[in-house]
C-alpha cells in the first residue's frame, strides 16, 4: 500500500484530504516530519488561507526545502488549492511573494467587476491535455472551487485543465513530470474529484513498484 504524506504546516484542515486518500486505498500520513515526507511514496501539499502566510509557515518549518527535495527526487507531488498556487514562482496576493518555484508562472487576483469573487461553487473542467495520466478513464465534469486568486502558468504545456469563469479560462489543473496541482478541492468534488485523486495516487503506486 502506498503511503501518502500530507504536509502539515499549520494551514487549514487536513482531515478531509486524509480521509479521501484513505478511501482510495492508500495510507494517509498527516505530517510535518521531513524524513517521513521524503520517505513517502507521494506528497500532497494542501492549503487554505493567504499565500504569504503559507510560504512563511513553510519557510519557518523548513518544509519548503523538503517539498522541493521530494519533487526533485521524482516523487509525485500534488498541490491542492492554495497548495497548487504555492508551486508557482510568485504571487501578488497582498503584496509580492515568492513561491516554491517548482513551476514557472505567477498567481494573480481575479479582476472581478462583472462577476463574483471568490470563484466559489461547482464549475466544469475542460481537459487541455486529455492524454495526461490524471485523466485516464475520465470524462470532463464539474468540480468544486473556492478561490480569489488564480495561477497563470508560463508554459502552455503545464496547463492540463481549465474552467470558464469571469469571461475566460481559469487554471484548474497544472502538471509537469511528477509535479501536479489542482486549484479546486478534489476531496470536495464528488465522484470526479475522487477519481482525479485516485489517478494521482496511481502514480504513487507506480513509483512503489519501480523502486
Amino acid at each position: 500500500m502506498a503511503t501518502i504524506a500530507i504536509v502539515d504546516y499549520g494551514m487549514g484542515n487536513l482531515h478531509s484530504v486524509a480521509k479521501a486518500v484513505e478511501r482510495q486505498g492508500s495510507e494517509a500520513l498527516v505530517t510535518s516530519d521531513p524524513s517521513a515526507i521524503l520517505a513517502a511514496d507521494a506528497v500532497i501539499l494542501p492549503g487554505v488561507g493567504a499565500f504569504g502566510d503559507a510560504m512563511a509557515c513553510l519557510r519557518d518549518t523548513a518544509l519548503d526545502a523538503v517539498v522541493a527535495q521530494a519533487a526533485a527526487n521524482g516523487k509525485p507531488l500534488l498541490g491542492i488549492c492554495l497548495g497548487m498556487q504555492l508551486l508557482f514562482a510568485r504571487s501578488e496576493e497582498h503584496g509580492d511573494h515568492e513561491g516554491l518555484g517548482l513551476l514557472p508562472g505567477r498567481v494573480v487576483r481575479f479582476t472581478g467587476g462583472t462577476y463574483k469573487v471568490p470563484h466559489m461553487g461547482w464549475n466544469r473542467l475542460r481537459f487541455e491535455q486529455p492524454e495526461s495520466p490524471l485523466f485516464a478513464g475520465l470524462d470532463e465534469g464539474h468540480v468544486y472551487f473556492v478561490h480569489s486568486f488564480h495561477a497563470l502558468p508560463e508554459r502552455a504545456s503545464d496547463l492540463l485543465a481549465v474552467t470558464e469563469y469571469g469571461g475566460g479560462p481559469v487554471t484548474a489543473i497544472v502538471g509537469r513530470d511528477n509535479v501536479y496541482g489542482m486549484q479546486f478541492h478534489p476531496e470536495k468534488s464528488g465522484e470526479l474529484g475522487m477519481q482525479l485523486l485516485r489517478n494521482f495516487l496511481k502514480l504513487a503506486e507506480t513509483t512503489v513498484r519501480v523502486s
Binding site: K19, A20, Y144, K188, G190, E191
Partner: peptide, 11 residues
C-alpha cells in the same frame, strides 16, 4: 461533523 467530513466528498 468529524465523521461526516470523513465520509462525504462534497462541501
Amino acid at each position: 461533523v468529524r465523521q461526516t467530513a470523513g465520509e462525504i466528498a462534497i462541501p
